[in-house]
Amino acid sequence: MAAVQVCEAEKVYIMHGVRDDLRVDGRGCEDYRHMEIETDVVSNTDGSARVKLGYTDVLVGIKAEIGKPKPAAPDEGYLEFFVDCSANATPEFEGRGGEELGSELSCTLYKVFNNVNSLELRALCIAPREHCWVLYVDVLLLQCDGNLFDAISIAIKAALFNTRIPKVTITEGEEGGAELELSDDPYDCVRLNVENVPCIVTLCKIGHRHVVDATLQEKACSVAGLLVSVTHKGTITCVRKVGGGSLEPESIFEMTETGKRVGKALHAPLMKLLRDEEAQGKQRQKVGFLG
């Protein structure tokens, strides 16, 4: 991650601020920064979204391809995650610099979606053991200003909402084998149910309290944090300790409690926004990368 240096006195200032529930930019401990979300930003994808959280800027594109189901789950499609840390974000990602962070991010995403409830994988199956949809979720970091996990998870949820998979019908081929036929009507497509897709909340322990949506400066003051992925029902699909320090058992319980509460509250406005955007349809002025 982009290195930010913070001296002792600044750390003390930030820590005392967190104690008083007034962070450097005026937010409380559980406040997110200003967030802008737009879907359908890249035309060559089946679904895409861009999320700006403070100066963090994330672009997610989803492409659906037909593949073979995994032998362990013959009647399910699957998702593939790839996170690219572009050198545009910070010069440290140049060359192989961003690889470590990228693989950490994508591994976490696999874990977050590694349960039956997050996404209806059965709906992605075309013919058991033969064909299924593989959703390639490609995440691009355009700018990093802390709290990548949360921004990425929100962008993925928005992009999945935006994803339209063409309808496929199986017909009997001439030589007896099954043949796939893709519908040529672009409006004849399948949507995904994203209701249960979780959002990640990263909590950073600073002093004796914890904050959500930490900036890079705040992250530099924190030795350990907890990443909690929460569904709209408030269930937790993934928890990981991040950072080099250790946590007291009590603070872990407190942090998961906060994470659950904050994460649960993220879903309703997000879904409302996505529906509103869709309702506007063609009339909506696309901002894209000009905003």
Partner: peptide, 13 residues
């Protein structure tokens, strides 16, 4: 809390 924080981007002149 989170309400009102998320929004669509708008063109700023």
């Amino acid at each position: 809390m989170a309400a009102g924080l998320m929004r669509l981007p708008v063109f700023r002149k």
